[in-house]
Design a protein around this nucleic acid. Structure first.
Length: 205
DNA sequence: GTACTGATACTCT
DNA sequence: GAGTATCAGTACT
């Protein structure tokens, strides 16, 4: 397995996130999610995302307007939105759209690249494919919890930021990205707002 | 391989 | 008080 140092790849800037949510969700596929913890780097390639809008999207937390929880979705793009679900799991989102317009991309799965020992310990499995192949699993593997809510994914002007997403400069053929209905929701199931990398084999690390 | 179920605590009505 | 952007374990095919 090839190791990837996030310092070799540039952080996605706020302009990347300040666009239509579905476009951001699709383009986040193949990007590198990086968490720095206790001097160690955990990273992995994003393989699955979902787009959530606002008032026209009953499945979104922002559908009912500015509730305290969803407030961050109305703020400026490029920040992390972490929330708690089903009593046990944290979910990681990236805020999208222009300030004042709600939107977020749920990061549902990543392919672990570095720090897999730490992830394996936290997840109680050594199977790389199962370490972070679900939204609840990836937050456990990457040590992401409510303390990460509101962090600036673009790094901002602050070097202490430890949660970032980098551009690997990989040209993904869009035929490699599958578009399907979203998972686990009860409303607006018909919308095709889930994006999945079809073949993780193209990352032959 | 698929199908079902319980665990769990936070958010909003 | 009801609903929830899930997971692991169990049972069954």
């Amino acid at each position: 397995m090839m190791s990837i140092d996030s310092n070799d790849y540039k952080i996605l800037d706020r302009g990347f996130y300040s666009r239509d949510t579905a476009i951001v969700a699709k383009e986040l596929i193949g990007k590198l999610l990086v968490k720095k913890i206790q001097g160690q780097q955990l990273n992995g390639i994003i393989t699955e995302t979902e787009a959530y809008y606002g008032k026209n999207d009953p499945a979104s937390h922002a559908f009912r307007g500015r509730t305290p929880r969803a407030e961050i979705m109305f703020g400026s793009a490029g920040f992390a939105y972490v929330y708690f679900c089903y009593g046990m799991y944290y979910m990681l989102n990236a805020v999208t759209e222009r300030e004042g317009i709600p939107g977020a991309v749920l990061i549902r799965a990543v392919l672990p690249i570095s720090g897999t020992d730490t992830m394996a310990m936290r997840r109680n499995t050594r199977d790389i494919k199962k370490l972070a192949n679900g939204p609840g699993k990836l937050t456990i593997a990457f040590c992401i919890d409510f303390s990460d809510n509101g962090k600036d994914l673009t790094g901002g002007c602050n070097n202490s930021v430890d949660l970032t997403i980098h551009d690997l400069d990989i040209n993904l053929d869009s035929r490699n990205i599958l578009q399907t209905p979203r998972i686990g929701i009860t409303n607006a199931k018909e919308k095709q707002l889930r994006f999945v990398l079809k073949d993780i084999g193209i990352f032959n690390f």
